[in-house]
């Protein structure tokens, strides 16, 4: 790389450390938030014993997970069994690198930032597969099979929606995409590309295995899906990766559609975080509202609605871009 210098190395390392801390902190905050939202929606207070309003509950959970024994089912393929959680978590740190939290807080701003995120998020699917297969458990296998057919399917409309935005801005650099949007809501991409935003937002539920599309982990059918056999930190890594992915897709949505760190006044990373957390809240709200979709519904929605709509949207975008 020609712009490679000590300064780049420095920002990369500091960015990585900061991102790992950000992921862990976020996961804890999100678990607490998820429980609170779940509680409030079910008209109960949620965790409220540990610390003010129960904020320390996630810390207690993390400590519990750290001290749990790591078990491996007999006849499980030990190498792959322990490789899978690591494989699931390791790309996550990389995925946060190109996110433009603010003009200053961007660990690494390559021209292909968007592509990097899309490329490395595919590794998570692989980890799910390996985990499901190596557990030597039917539930895990079913969970993995469902997870993969769902993730592979929903990646396509997601890509189409993202592509429409990239088309519109002529770049794959997230910072530049944010740069080209304005601070007020009507200057955001969600205003010019509402359909792409809708498709993206529906697809991320399928991508991150969140309810109502949480079939890979459907408790009532598959115990815990692909991570049934994982205990202690093995489970914790999957969990962390899942929440990190949730944050990631919401952050990408913020950068692509909601103007990133730009706000009506006082531009900065607080706008970025506020918007991302707003999206995360909607994801939780949806999760605790709708029942789980049946699998054929899930795939029908994807192949019969989102995919054609996404393709049409892309075509329309291309047409408009060519015309004006």
């Amino acid at each position: 790389m020609n712009e490679f210098s000590l300064w780049t190395v420095f920002t990369l390392v500091v960015g990585l450390v900061a991102i790992l801390a950000f992921i862990a902190g976020n996961a804890m905050a999100l678990v607490w938030m998820e429980r609170k939202v779940a509680g409030f929606i079910q008209r109960r207070p949620g965790p409220n014993q540990l610390g003010p309003a129960g904020v320390l509950q996630s810390v207690a959970d993390a400590v519990k997970l750290l001290f749990k024994q790591i078990l491996k089912p007999s006849n499980a393929d030990s190498i792959i069994f322990f490789l899978a959680p690591i494989l699931s978590f390791f790309p996550v740190a990389l995925l946060f690198m190109p996110l433009p939290f603010s003009p200053f807080f961007t660990a690494y701003s390559p021209n292909l930032g968007l592509l990097l995120i899309l490329a490395f998020s595919g590794i998570n699917v692989l980890a799910v597969l390996l985990a499901g297969w190596s557990s030597n458990n039917k539930y895990s296998l079913y969970g993995a099979a469902r997870g993969v057919s769902q993730s592979v399917a929903y990646e396509i409309p997601l890509l189409l929606a993202v592509l429409a935005i990239a088309f519109q801005h002529g770049t794959l650099n997230l910072s530049e995409i944010v740069e080209q949007q304005g601070g007020w809501p009507w200057q955001w991409n969600v205003f010019t590309q509402p359909l792409a935003f809708l498709i993206y937002f529906i697809s991320i539920f399928g991508e991150t295995n969140r309810s109502p599309f949480d079939l890979p982990e459907a408790e009532s059918e598959l115990t815990a899906g692909f991570h049934t056999e994982y205990s202690g930190m093995g489970f914790a890594l999957f969990f962390l990766a899942e929440y990190a992915n949730m944050v990631l897709v919401c952050c990408v949505a913020t950068a692509l559609f909601l103007g990133g760190w730009k706000g009506p006044f006082l531009d900065g990373f607080w706008w970025f975080l506020a918007k991302a957390y707003g999206l995360l809240f909607i994801m939780m709200w949806v999760r605790w509202t709708y029942p789980r979709a049946r699998f054929d519904m899930l795939l029908n929605l994807n192949w019969k609605w989102l995919l054609p709509l996404g393709a049409l949207n892309l075509l329309a975008t291309a047409f408009v871009m060519k015309l004006f």
Binding site: F40, I41, Q42, R43, R44, W285, V286, T289, Y290
Partner: peptide, 21 residues
Amino acid sequence: SLGVGLAVTAWYLVNRKITVQ
């Protein structure tokens, strides 16, 4: 109906808690 569902849970979200601690 999806919107109605969301409205119901949003109403619960801000409403009084009814469980007994």
